[in-house]
Nucleic acid binder design. Structure first.
Lengths: 226, 226
DNA sequence: TCAAAAGTGTTAAGTTTACACCCATGA
DNA sequence: TCATGGGTGTAAACTTAACACTTTTGA
């Protein structure tokens, strides 16, 4: 390709940063890393990575998520581009933030340790590098909106879960208490949340029915309203 | 600054593309440009511009909007980053899309002409360059969501407007008919949509009351629910 | 036997929808 | 005088919110 019209314009480092959400013990959590290089090595940050020369930015996000968790083909949603001139004190870097919802039990804990990454509760985040706090806030806001329209929360749960777990998940994401009876009434109407005949005995003496998300049933739903 | 750790990573051209929405004669419109340079000169496209070396990306969006419309300090919302490897046939360019809502009457028509830019109806868009169609779809989706939560539509109208205009605007954005009486009932409850004592005689013989959006009253609203 | 979590219905209030006719005016 | 767009109310259906007690069982 001949030197193009474009070449008179500057170029920039472009990175992705991943907000990886998990859910454990009734708490919404984010996977944070002790930054492994200078500048500001050792500070709490999101896992990030530079976009490669011939790589789609969405792929860069998947690759970065995979490096830290071992997970493949996880749904990631773009939060947006962060491009203030001085956002990164190392050099100018334009960064695209993405968030992912993962089942903590499926994350490779060895990879986490190798990368000095730890699950931190959303309600008590440490001070974070650069604009990473804003990125997390942006991601949470998107997640709240999404969960009001689509059943995305199930990615944060194991395949079988109790209604109490599900309710705690919604409470953690939305940041507010929900009435137990009203919550269960709403769930009971949804054809894609199925009761199994299995019982969870870990969290109560009585035991709680385990449910499963049936995505086939979900996709059969009409996507318009009468 | 010494050559940093970052410098081993590639750099990219980064651009912004602006989806500029307007509203005229009951139609939602976008300002499109005949592309003024190669490759693919002359094709319909969004107005774009490269980010400058020491410029925030949000500023690049404002600057690009201003070049084409003469408008300053318009609220712009980021749609997202578009970064597929081959999205631009000229060279690799990562582009951040932004949308703006403007009052067509306030746009500098001379600047439009100088830049070969024209208002096109959203319902009959021509074929567009690269991924610009996706950008517009993303912007429309964001706009629909926003308008369900905040009174953003007023930026598309002149300072004084009739209820019929307002209703047509909502119908154009949402893509569906709204019942006139129900619409007016909802509007009549809102303290920040004020009836003036002026009458518009342009669109009907009888004349229609002109209303105004009072943003002071809007900002007095509590931002939580009881 | 008792502490801890699971499970279960009803009613009132509020919101949304559907629907049709008269009004004022300029051409 | 009539064609055009402006303006108005009510009832039924549906949705949401508030609320408290009984069940099961392991320690």
């Amino acid at each position: 390709m001949p030197p193009s019209f474009y070449s008179q314009y500057p170029k920039f480092h472009v990175a992705v940063d991943c907000i990886i959400f998990g859910f454990e013990k009734g708490q919404l959590k984010v996977l944070l890393q002790k930054r492994p290089f200078e500048p500001r090595q050792g500070e709490w940050s999101l896992m990030g990575g530079f976009v490669k020369r011939d790589e789609d930015i969405d792929h860069a996000a998947q690759r970065t998520l995979n490096q830290l968790t071992g997970l493949h083909d996880i749904y990631m949603k773009q939060v947006g581009a962060f491009g203030s001139v001085n956002r990164d004190s190392g050099d100018r870097v334009i960064s695209i933030a993405y968030f992912a919802l993962v089942d903590i039990e499926r994350v490779n804990a060895d990879l986490n340790h190798e990368n000095s990454a730890y699950w931190e509760e959303m309600t008590q985040l440490p001070p974070l590098l650069f604009d990473h706090k804003e990125m997390i806030e942006g991601a949470l806001k998107k997640l709240r909106t999404m969960i009001g329209h689509q059943p995305v929360g199930f990615s944060l749960l194991p395949p079988l879960f109790t209604l109490t777990q599900l309710q705690m998940l919604y409470e953690a994401i939305l940041g507010e208490k929900i009435d137990k009876r009203n919550f269960r009434k709403r769930v009971s109407v949804l054809p894609y949340i199925e009761k199994t005949d299995q019982i969870d005995k870990l969290t109560s003496k009585r035991g709680a029915a385990l449910y499963r998300f049936n995505d086939v049933a979900y996709n059969l739903e009409p996507n318009f309203k009468l």
